[in-house]
Nucleic acid binder design. Sequence first.
DNA 1: ATCGTATTCAACCTCTCGGTTTATCAACAG
DNA 2: CTGTTGATAAACCGAGAGGTTGAATACGAT
Lengths: 114, 114
Amino acid sequence: MSDDELSRTFAALADPTRRAILARLAEGEATVNELAEPFDMSLQAVSKHLKVLERAGLITRGRDAQWRPCRLETAPLETASAWIDRYCAHWSDRFDRLEREIRRVQHEEGQEQA
Amino acid sequence: MSDDELSRTFAALADPTRRAILARLAEGEATVNELAEPFDMSLQAVSKHLKVLERAGLITRGRDAQWRPCRLETAPLETASAWIDRYCAHWSDRFDRLEREIRRVQHEEGQEQA
DNA sequence: ATCGTATTCAACCTCTCGGTTTATCAACAG
DNA sequence: CTGTTGATAAACCGAGAGGTTGAATACGAT
């Protein structure tokens, strides 16, 4: 596989196990054992998947005694999404949706003030 | 590789040659020879890349005499982008990025790569 | 020091990817 | 029919993905 950043990101996303891991991490940090639990696969296999995700910059790992908690990093996801968006023709739709979302958030913030 | 739709899409995007092909097709239909021209690679290799893209639903191919014009299909791109967006929480950042991207594209209106 | 738990490393296997070359198919032009 | 051009098919190859098992490492608890 090519080793440029976008290629690494997309390749990392091209596996349902890894996507499930990312989905799990979106809810918060987790250890390797916790991440491996749902899968019918060896711990070592999951560890390899995590290495792929780490190389792609999609996760970072801390150290807490013998545990290596994994944390989701969204920067490469944003780069990948930006690449895709350039070739999705529906600019105005997306723009409208985002504009609505922002107005909604701003409105909520205003209400919180009162 | 796993054969579900998202996996096929991301796997197809995980190659710079295929991303360049999609970028080219975003400017309009093209034949296999036209698509192969920029690459230092055999026509057959490009044909294989097109087959991957076709299996992922990212392109469709017509028939015009002995030519097989390729056309970009954005539906899987939108699905992929939607998956990513679910895990990128940074709406306002995205908004800024999109706004910048739109201005950039409106300015350039032309020659660029994957 | 020893044991248990969390994680990784190393070796191995099988299958797919991305490329090649050679041969073949399909459609026009003469 | 023959020849040419556009495109695909088939067979092959080296490298890497994704999984396994077994050993090694790192740290905490006893």
